Simulated assay, not measured.
Amino acid sequence: MLSIKKYAAIDIGSNAVRLLIATITEPQEQAPIFKKTSLVRVPIRLGEDVFLKGKVSESNKKRMRDTMQAFALLMKSHKVLKYKACATSAMRDAENGQELAQNIKAETGIDIEIIDGEHEAAMIATTDLRNLIQNDKNYLYVDVGGGSTELSFFTEGEKLASKSFKIGTVRLLNDRVEESLWNEMKLWIQNVTKRYTKISLIGSGGNINNIFKSSGKKIGKPLSYFYLSSYYQMLTSLTYEERIVKLNQNADRADVIIPATKIYLSTMKWSRARKVYVPKIGLADGIIKYMYNEEQQQTIF
C-alpha cells in the first residue's frame, strides 16, 4: 500500500525565516520520494537586531510571533503530520533568544529548537548532498547564512572535518566580522585541504542559488571560479537600486548577495577549488530528511 504523508521544516535564520512543507511518498519496497509542496520565506532579518544590539527588537519579536502563527495555520491547512523548527546563528547569539522561543511556544504552539553550528551542518548533510559526492574526488561544502558559514570537508566519500564560523552576510553588512576571524577560516580551510587535489566546492544558501539561476546553467553543472569572480565584479559595479531593477533581485537579496559571493570566492581561493556545484539544498531540506530518518530508526527499534 502506498504511504503518503506531509512533514514541515521551519528554518529561522539570521536573514529570513522559511517554512518548507514536503510530501513524502513511500512506494512498497522502494526508496521514499521527497517532493517540495510549499515554500514560504519571510525576510525578518533577526541578525540585524542581534549583531548590532545583542537581542531581538520588540518589532521583530512581534513579526516572529505573527509569522509562527501563520506557519502554524499553514501546517494545519496542509495536514502536516510532523514538523521541526530550528533557529540558527541570530537566535543563538541573542540574549533574549530562549525567552522569545518560550513566548512563541506559549502563544503559537510552535516549539523552536536553537541549534549550534555543528548540529546545523549535520542536518544539512542528511540531504541529497550525498548524491553529489564521488569517492574519487574531494569536496568542501560551504553553506553561507546571514549569521554564520558552515564548512564540511569530504574525502573518499566521507566527512573528514567540519566547522562553523561567525562570518555571515548580515554580520558583514553590519561590519561585525573581525579580520582575525577571516584569517581563522582561511587557515582552517588551508590546513584541512592542503594534502588533497581535485577539490570542488559544493555551495548552498539562497544567494548562491540566486547566482546559479541567473547563470542559465543546467542543473548539475558547476559554476567556475572565473564566472563567480566576474559576477562579483558586476554586482559591485551596480548600486543597490540597480541590483533590484536590472537584476530583478528582491530588496532583501540585493544587499546580502555581495558579501555572500565574497565568502564563496574566498573559500574557493583558499581551498584551490576551481568550480562550485549548487544543489538546491539547505537546512529546511535537511530538517525534513532528519525527521524522516529519525522516525525510520524508531520504527526499526
Results as ranks from 00 to 15, higher is better:
Lys218Arg: 12
Ser214Thr: 09
Ser229Gly: 11
Ser215Glu: 09
Arg243Met: 01
Ala251Trp: 00
Leu247Gly: 05
Glu242Val: 02
Gln249Met: 15
Ser230Ala: 15
Lys246Glu: 12
Ser224Asn: 09
Gly216Gln: 08
Lys218Ala: 13
Asn209Gly: 13
Ser214Gln: 15
Ser224Met: 08
Lys213Pro: 02
Asn248Leu: 06
Lys217Glu: 14
Ile211Glu: 02
Ile211Met: 03
Ser237Met: 04
Leu223Tyr: 03
Leu238Ala: 00
Thr236His: 05
Tyr240Ile: 06
Lys217Arg: 15
Gln233His: 12
Leu228Gln: 07
Leu238Ile: 01
Asn248Tyr: 06
Lys218Thr: 11
Ala251Glu: 14
Lys221Trp: 06
Asn209Thr: 10
Tyr232Ser: 11
Tyr227Pro: 06
Leu223Thr: 04
Leu223Cys: 08
Ser229Leu: 14
Lys218Phe: 01
Glu241Ile: 07
Asn209Arg: 13
Ser229Asn: 15
Pro222His: 02
Lys218Cys: 04
Ser215Val: 05
Lys218Tyr: 02
Ile219Arg: 09
Ala251Asp: 13
Asn209Leu: 09
Thr236Tyr: 09
Tyr240Met: 09
Leu247Met: 15
Asn250Thr: 07
Thr239Gly: 11
Leu235Trp: 09
Thr239Arg: 05
Ile244Arg: 13
Pro222Leu: 03
Glu241Leu: 09
Glu242Ser: 07
Gly220Asp: 06
Phe212Leu: 03
Gln249Ala: 06
Glu242Ile: 00
Tyr231Pro: 10
Leu238Phe: 04
Lys218Met: 11
Tyr231Thr: 12
Tyr227Trp: 12
Thr239Val: 01
Asn210Tyr: 02
Phe212Ile: 03
Leu238His: 07
Lys213Glu: 12
Lys218Asp: 12
Phe212Lys: 05
Tyr232Thr: 07
Phe212Ser: 01
Lys213Tyr: 12
Tyr227His: 10
Met234Ala: 11
Lys246Ile: 01
Met234Val: 03
Ser237Trp: 02
Thr239Glu: 00
Gln233Arg: 12
Gly216Ala: 08
Ile244Val: 15
Ser229Ala: 15
Leu223Ala: 06
Gly216Asn: 06
Lys217Ala: 15
Gln233Trp: 00
Lys218Pro: 01
Ile211Lys: 03
Gly216Arg: 08
Val245Thr: 13
Ala251Thr: 10
Tyr240Ser: 05
Leu228Met: 14
Leu228Pro: 09
Leu235Arg: 06
Gly220Asn: 07
Ser215Asn: 08
Ser214Tyr: 04
Asn210Ala: 11
Val245Leu: 10
Ser224Gly: 09
Tyr231Glu: 13
Ile219Pro: 05
Asn250Met: 13
Tyr225Phe: 15
Thr236Gly: 00
Gly220Ser: 10
Tyr231Gly: 10
Ser229Trp: 10
Ser229Phe: 13
Ser214His: 12
Tyr240Gln: 10
Ser224Lys: 08
Ala251Leu: 05
Ser237Gln: 10
Ser215Leu: 08
Pro222Asn: 00
Ile211Gly: 01
Leu238Asp: 00
Lys246Gly: 02
Arg243His: 03
Met234Tyr: 07
